[in-house]
Design a binder for these strands. Structure first.
Lengths: 209, 209
DNA sequence: CGTACTTTTGAATCGCATCAAATCTGGTGG
DNA sequence: CCACCAGATTTGATGCGATTCAAAAGTACG
């Protein structure tokens, strides 16, 4: 094994310079744990290696709004230079979380241009993913949103469901009842199947006008 | 005047290093002009100094989906290291557009850590704005979306409307009819007023809960 | 075995999309 | 200046789809 940091996720090892990898700490976080809370000052950055973490905010009526569902990658990276977090991060599926301190991260960026470039590339990817999320939420039928998600985030029509349909409903911005009904209807129409913890889209394009 | 690049927007002058500012070209773009098209290769980056530009994609049924409405700042910055654009940029209000070539921009980042840091800060701000946009689209009533927009992007309850309500409707992900009705109803309820090309929210909190 | 949570189905209601049509607006050319 | 046109604005009627409230059944976990 070439890298001495076997405990760190491969993607992370390719992103961070070695000096930072040495300062990483990986631990297991249990369902329900909060990585950070809105309003608190960012000290560390959190990388999700496995499991699932959601970013959420409380709406004005106290309802929970899911901003992001992360099964992979950084959460709260937009708060890198911020005075405080703008949302909560909650673990919804037992996860491996790698923690990197903010200060050495910023220091590394200041003198490692290649690292900055990789970080910018990551942010760009996140921006594109978020634009797709907006595009998805602009669709007004549940089925359209679900198909859009499968197309853009699935692999070959297969969408992993680590935390169940209810969590997915939150990400799609619909009630869980509506999503259950949508999935049931599509299964009946032979265009979707549930395979364990995944949704599989069957290529019959009866739906695609 | 201290900077020799008076033709460049102040915000841009503070972001880019001097060598890049010299390579910028600012021009006027007319309503209807396309800055770039989805699928084409990014050569330049575009900064909107005034006017209004929308990023949009065609949905599967050919309907136009507005991804972003920019009156200020870069458009398509997520395509910095991409092989091709993932959406179209269309001028909807006559605009001042500053063009920066991609190659020198990337070169500057490679050896100017402070510039990279500023660029990252800009991307982070864009990420947060996009997360708010997702939060907004997750609301299911037109009025909630409009108030959310006024709260997050307005200045003191005042939201500029450079391109009319129809353009705004696209950004909110609703039909223009629905938005017209919503605004009319709120004006009748004394909680919103139209002042020329702006919407002003009147602090009567009859709406909030 | 009980508790908490997800999953599932049902019925009633509400808000938006849709289709349609009329009016208003700014800009162009006669 | 006026006729004219394209696009934005406005109002109306109808239907669909999601929300909402409610309740029951399944499931994981201590």
């Amino acid at each position: 094994m070439s890298t001495p940091f076997a405990n760190v996720h491969k993607e992370l090892a390719e992103l961070l310079p070695e000096a930072l990898l040495a300062a990483c700490e990986t631990r297991r976080a249990k369902k329900g744990e909060r990585l950070f809370l809105a309003g608190t000052k960012p000290i560390c950055m959190f990388y999700v290696g496995s499991g699932e973490v959601v970013l959420e905010r409380l709406g004005r009526q106290g309802e929970v709004v899911v901003l992001q569902r992360a099964r992979h990658g950084f959460v709260g990276e937009a708060s890198l230079q911020s005075a405080r977090y703008h949302c909560d991060a909650r673990v919804v599926v037992n996860a491996e979380i790698t923690t990197v301190e903010m200060a050495p991260l910023l220091a590394a960026m200041a003198h490692d241009a290649a690292f900055s470039a990789r970080w910018i590339r990551m942010l760009n990817a996140e921006l594109r993913r978020l634009r797709l999320q907006c595009e998805r939420l602009a669709l007004n039928r549940v089925q359209d949103r679900l198909l859009h998600l499968i197309e853009t985030e699935g692999q070959g029509g297969r969408l992993p469901l680590a935390a169940g349909l209810k969590s997915l409903a939150g990400q799609l911005g619909v009630t869980h009842e509506a999503l259950y009904r949508c999935v049931a209807g599509m299964e009946k129409s032979q265009c979707l199947r549930r395979e364990g913890a995944a949704l599989v889209w069957l290529a019959g394009d009866a739906i695609v006008v």
